[in-house]
């Protein structure tokens, strides 16, 4: 399964090579043109270049991760986070370090050796280290260099009632959904942009959109989902099983009504469930894309991901499936009615 391979591949921000490689090989047979830019954004062009609006579909390649910044005399590795990692989740996790995927574990002072007042406090990255089993600095340096990145060693697995757990569903669900879409035939000029460095400040998407200069962009993401024990509906943001979440407002973007209307129309015409992403918090690549050049009409569709940014993220595969369906429905609707009407005003809900 492509989502499994993408989830288990390493792609820290700025070091997205493994994920980029998988998508390149997967999509090369289906593309008119495949290329990269100076940041490592991957572009896959498909469809009919001569007809209809030019659509950019974007998903980010990168994931939050760790970087080795120092090697101790004892052979343990000091690290810092790449992107927004919650430091509290790090202790006692398994990781893979560097391009050769050296196995390691994140260690800390054993609880027995801690003072009572230490036990109530979360570990900070300064208290933690990666242990690859090296006997000392010299041995460690044969396997690892300062600047190597580490990712969580979480196996993808289906479990429960149609759910899957794994790492980096933010945003490998988007990458997988785009890849499935790129294999379908559309009578539209499509550019699939797999972007870099989203997790460190939406850095890859702006240059990508500047290059592609599309008439319309759609960002496909994994997003916040807090529909669990102890949570109230008002704080859930999204709820698993209710289908793809459509963004209306986040920290960086006020959604484009015209694109939202087309998404809602496509969903309703095809009986695809959808929900609003109900929070002003968070941001995704749309925040960078919609302000490029003269402004690009941009929408954002997200798969709800529980425990986002942690080593074990959970998605509902039905939500993923409905997201893939919605992408196709949205593009078919554009094929039928390619006239883009972009009033600055008007209703966005149906």
């Amino acid at each position: 399964m492509l989502l499994k391979r993408l989830s288990e591949a390493a792609g820290p921000s700025g070091f997205e090579d493994e994920v980029r490689r998988i998508l390149y090989e997967e999509l090369r047979p289906h593309a008119r043109r495949v290329y990269t830019d100076a940041l490592g954004n991957l572009f896959v062009e498909t469809g009919n270049p001569g007809r209809g609006p030019r659509v950019m579909l974007a998903a980010h390649l990168d994931e939050v991760a760790l970087m080795v910044v120092q090697i101790d005399d004892a052979g343990t590795l000091r690290f810092r986070p790449v992107g927004g990692v919650d430091e509290r989740v790090l202790v006692s996790k398994a990781v893979f370090v560097g391009p050769n995927r050296i196995p390691g574990v994140i260690g800390s002072k054993a609880v027995h050796l801690q003072k009572p007042e230490e036990r109530g406090k979360p570990f900070s990255v300064e208290d933690l280290y990666i242990d690859i089993g090296a006997s000392g600095r010299e041995q460690a340096e044969r396997h690892v260099s300062v600047g190597d990145t580490a990712v969580f060693a979480t196996a993808f697995e289906r479990f429960g009632d149609g759910k899957a757990k794994g790492k980096a569903f933010d945003d490998r669900v988007g990458c997988a959904a785009l890849a499935e879409t790129a294999k379908k035939s559309f009578d539209l000029p499509l550019v699939f942009a797999f972007t870099v460095q989203e997790e460190i400040g939406l850095r890859g998407a702006g240059p990508a959109a500047y290059r592609v200069d599309p008439d319309l962009a759609l960002v496909v993401e994994g997003t916040l989902c807090f529909d669990v024990a102890g949570a109230e509906e008002k704080d859930a943001v999204t709820v698993q099983g209710r289908g793809p979440a459509l963004s209306i407002l986040d920290r960086m973007t006020i959604a484009d009504r015209a694109v939202l209307r087309r998404l809602v129309r496509a969903a309703e015409k095809n009986g695809i469930p959808y929900q609003w992403r109900r929070s002003g918090a968070g941001a995704n690549d749309a925040g960078a894309i919609h302000l490029v050049r003269r402004g690009i009409a941009t929408g954002a569709v997200s798969v709800p991901v529980r425990y986002i940014h942690s080593p074990v993220q959970v998605v509902d595969l039905a939500d993923y499936h409905h997201t893939v369906r919605l992408l196709e429905a949205f593009l078919r609707d554009l094929e039928e009615d390619p006239q883009l009407d972009f009033p600055a005003e008007g209703e966005w809900t149906s």
Binding site: S13, D37, A38, L39, N41, M67, V69, R80, P81, V82, G83, V146, G147, I200, G201, R203, G204, G206, P207, A208, Y210, R211
Partner: peptide, 22 residues
């Protein structure tokens, strides 16, 4: 060697993102 995990605190942070990316 000076390693960083995100954008540097220098002009490089914006140069890299200019136009199609540099």
């Amino acid at each position: 060697l000076l390693v960083g995990q995100g954008a540097t605190g220098t002009d490089a942070r914006i140069i890299q993102l200019t136009r199609e990316g540099i």
